[in-house]
């Protein structure tokens, strides 16, 4: 509080309404506040001559020097910070590269399982926000192919960590029209990670569309084999979300409710948050436990608002692009465990 220029006597007066052992009157308080107040507004309704003179006089006195000082300081600040931001970004990039070297999953579920083994809390529903890069600047992750790649990798990590439910938000919703293809790519990646025998089963779904989970390609396993795998096969549910599942779905719900109210099948005061919640839960998704952003800063880009209520939001500042490190750190943060780099 030292830096605000408030004296201790004033702050106690402000805090308790008491000064020198007696309560202060409003008048005294106003007097105390005097130096902190902005200029009184020059009333625009009746600008008397004296007021105009006073105003112009004041402007002459402090105007140009002050505003020049402001201009200079603003640009100095902007310059210093832009240098600082660039350095910070570079430093974090180096750091993340080092961590990425130390913590690599080698496309093996066992490595990922070892990384998350000591976490006593895992999200049951994980959500990620991905971007569709149209331009070729970010090579390797451009276009639909890059997006599908990202989805595949994240799905494999999620399955390896033992999280049963993954929802992927991508604002344009392009993936939704390629559900069978996405299913094929993701299950191929899962096979590459787990091997054909231990591969988790997968279902892909988008709101208002039927869940897509074709029968497994080797439909019957040998009896001996099924006895070997003592526990049930893991299952991963993948949900594709887009901008329409956010505000637009709520609007659609409102339209339906309005329609019902017009036909007298519902009274407006029957609407409560439980009703909306259960409708949206069925139509879109449940509340995710953890939301991971791979963008450099937290911008939700129209993510379904209702579902975000208590969701933990994780992002790594200045990170750009999908990588395993962000995923792992998010899980650590969720379990409130510091991630140690040493082995």
């Amino acid at each position: 509080m030292a830096t605000t220029g408030v004296k201790p006597k004033e702050s106690t007066a402000f805090r308790r309404g008491v000064v020198d052992g007696r309560s202060i009157t409003p008048k005294e308080r106003e007097a105390m506040l005097q130096p902190f107040l902005p200029e009184p507004p020059t009333s625009p309704s009746i600008p008397s001559k004296a007021q105009i003179e006073k105003a112009s006089h004041k402007k002459k006195k402090v105007g140009p020097i002050r505003s020049f000082a402001h201009f200079v300081i603003y640009h100095i600040i902007a310059f210093i910070f832009s240098v600082f931001f660039r350095f910070r970004r570079a430093w974090r990039l180096v750091k993340s590269k080092v961590v990425a070297l130390l913590k690599y999953h080698h496309r093996t579920p066992e490595f990922i399982q070892r990384d998350v083994k000591h976490l006593d809390r895992l999200p049951q529903h994980l959500s990620v926000i991905l971007d569709l890069h149209d331009n070729d600047e970010d090579q390797g992750s451009a276009g639909l192919e890059g997006l599908v790649n990202d989805v595949c990798e994240i799905a494999a990590w999620t399955a390896s960590a033992g999280i049963p439910y993954l929802s992927v938000y991508e604002k344009t919703g392009r993936l939704k029209s390629y559900i069978p293809q996405t299913h094929r790519s993701v299950s191929q990646t899962l096979e590459a990670y787990f091997g054909a025998r231990r591969k988790p089963s997968l279902s892909v779904r988008a709101p208002h569309q039927q869940s897509y989970s074709p029968p497994l390609t080797p439909p019957t396993l040998d009896l001996t084999e099924s006895n070997d795998s003592t526990n049930e096969r893991q299952h991963l549910a993948l949900l594709l979300l887009s901008r329409e599942d956010g505000r637009d779905t709520l609007i659609d719900l409102t339209k339906t409710l309005a329609d019902m109210a017009q036909h007298k099948s519902l009274k407006p005061n029957q609407i409560d948050s439980n009703l909306i919640d259960s409708e949206l839960r069925d139509a879109v998704s449940t509340e995710p436990d953890l939301l991971i952003l791979f963008s450099p800063r937290v911008v939700l880009e129209g993510y379904p608002p209702w579902q975000l209520r208590l969701t933990e939001i994780f992002h790594l500042p200045d990170n750009n692009g999908v990588n395993y490190q962000v995923f792992l750190r998010a899980l650590h943060k969720f379990a409130k465990v510091e991630m140690r780099l040493g082995r």
Partner: peptide, 20 residues
């Protein structure tokens, strides 16, 4: 704490910058 905790869910739309 990196959560919205039931605050401004609707208002945090496409361009809102959220800082923790």
């Amino acid at each position: 704490v990196q959560r919205l905790s039931d605050f401004m869910l609707w208002q945090c739309h496409e361009k809102t910058s959220i800082v923790f």
